[in-house]
Design a protein around this nucleic acid. Structure first.
Lengths: 337, 337
DNA sequence: ATAAAATGGTTAAGCGCTTTCCAAGGACCT
DNA sequence: AGGTCCTTGGAAAGCGCTTAACCATTTTAT
């Protein structure tokens, strides 16, 4: 049998209270007894049962991270940073992939409530925001990641999506593009990126043709399909802004399959700056999110909320950065006016 | 306050034992009382505290998955399948990234033992196998993933790495390549792939030059660096087998940076068939592991071991498959003999 | 009709910890 | 010498659940 605190206490000839206190460095314990207890702990290879301690402390020192899909590189990269930060703060992480599926969202959230997670991080792409609103009523700490919801007062940390969209479109416009299309996910953050597109085109007196904005879900195939549609149009765009790199990679593939050269014939810009964006040919111009900073911040915010539940909510927006690589250039000459 | 089983019992005017039994569908409870209890559970929005139940049952219904890095696409893809399967079996998963770092390995394993994980999955890339051996002594269920260790009798599920290497090299040889190099990770599975290389070259009477085998760790940069070295040699290989796709992508980049065309000037073959391998130009010829099957199998094996600790250990090797895409071709004419 | 078994539910112990409260003893002061 | 304070450690309650043991009915078998 695994040794328990009782075994340690008996061997060390002290009470279990004392053992508990030396483990947790609480109370006041003299040096000799502390050493004696520690020696026994070593000898028995005793490991405290944190399930038991969680039950008494009503606190599990674990967080839940709810994302659409860990196999999506954007989420796996950010998850990694969140894991590191959480671990650094002495917390463990449950990572759950919900596939943009409300059913799964519900199941996982109930499960993790049962598991007594101390707090929840809900990432972009979460469908049923009502589920999250229930957290508020039950006073469960939540913070939203890259999902800037304005209807309720959640703590959120995100990139400034509008600004990111602005950066991307502005880059294309300043290269001389007049006919710019967008392929965007059907999630809130992409909608914000899209707003920047519309606003900026408006500011430059360019018409926004609805044919030029495609809404889809993130996958290489969908990016490909969307791009194919765009390229078959009569008045084909000279540049496309894909609202994430996955979609952009699909767009690149589509262009290539039609024999079009990027960026000579058409420019493509992505968003997120995932590893993917350096493995393509040409390498992808994109907008980078400071995901490490975001990861650190979100666990800080969540911990703060756990410790001090009644603090004001806070929204943190990080500023994105344009990364110019090889996939954008001036539009083809004959198309310029 | 969150409702407990006592609240439900009081409201339903039954004992907590009865409530427990209807929740767990154990014992024999009449239909009327069951309905009555369930109604109260609904009304109070009661969620059983699984921390408490874990303490009494001495079982947490959770597994630990120890991998080097969740942000590596190979691991994030397979983690996703493992998560799905575990969840399907009613288990949750702790995923931990150890960065090939013995320090972190140790910390995480102790942590997860404290958390009372019911079983452990140790993935390829785990450095300190002694840590795992301790599991055996403590009777903690472990199974090894894609890490075919022969020194101890662990349960393992893996791809047949030797056969995979064989497939890759055989493909290159049958295309006519005589001068084949290898870039391999410094992990056991890659070593097996390397054995196939040596054996096959031997069988065909080709000399194995040690200059042609590079050992490194998995990253795009390392692949690039290794390839650069290979290409600067006098007697440059006409084909290279990268023991995983990450390395292969690096190799592709290196070739391109030197103005070499793949596969016209040099062939590259990868291993793993990650999404990455379809996003490159040219698309990567590679060896696919059936990771979904492997994922399903490994949780089955682990669960079996948890339930029946004294069953014989079992090693399951899945057979890999060659996926021919665009990055391999016959060697350049002037180099053939 | 009576014994045996099945049914439906309760009581109570215990899982391995944390933490509050208390007591004993020593140091220090008046 | 007696009182006060501080330090160190222990006793015991309780966290929310499961489950063995038990009891009282009711059903079934003989």
């Amino acid at each position: 049998m695994k040794p328990t605190i009782y075994d340690v206490a008996k061997e060390a000839k002290v009470s279990i209270a004392t053992v508990s206190k030396v483990i947790n460095k609480t109370g006041s314990i003299s040096d000799p007894t502390r050493k004696k207890v520690n020696k026994v702990i070593q000898r028995l290879n005793y490991k405290p049962n944190v399930v038991a301690s969680a039950l008494t402390k009503k606190q599990t020192d674990s967080l839940a991270l709810i994302i659409p899909d860990i196999s999506n590189p954007f989420f796996s990269e950010i998850s990694r940073f969140i894991e590191d930060k959480a671990h650094e703060m002495g917390l463990t992480l449950f990572i759950c992939s919900t596939d943009y599926n409300e059913e799964k969202e519900k199941r996982y959230i109930e499960l993790l409530q049962s598991k007594q997670a101390d707090g929840f991080i809900i990432a972009s792409g979460f469908q049923n925001i009502h589920l999250v609103e229930e957290f508020h009523q039950n006073n469960i700490p939540v913070t939203l990641l890259a999902q800037d919801n304005l209807t309720e007062s959640f703590n959120v940390v995100s990139v400034d999506d509008y600004r990111g969209g602005f950066l991307a479109i502005n880059h294309l416009i300043s290269l001389g593009h007049q006919n710019i299309a967008v392929i965007a996910e059907k999630v809130h953050s992409s909608t914000l990126r899209l707003h920047a597109y519309r606003d900026l085109l408006g500011m430059h007196g360019m018409p926004v043709s609805e044919e030029n904005v495609i809404r889809t879900t993130a996958s290489i195939q969908n990016g490909e399909k969307a791009m194919l549609g765009l390229l078959q149009k009569e008045d084909r765009p000279t540049a496309v802004f894909a609202a994430n790199d996955i979609l952009a990679v699909g767009a690149l593939k589509a262009a290539r399959s039609l024999g079009l050269e990027v960026p000579k014939d058409i420019s493509v810009i992505g968003f997120d700056n995932m590893i993917l964006s350096t493995t393509t040919v040409p390498e992808l111009t994109t907008v980078a999110q400071p995901i490490k900073d975001m990861a650190d911040k979100i666990v800080d915010v969540l911990i703060r909320q756990i410790k001090m539940p009644h603090l004001a909510t806070e929204r943190t927006l990080f500023v994105p950065e344009l990364i110019v690589r090889e996939s954008t250039a001036q539009p083809p000459k004959h198309l310029k006016n």
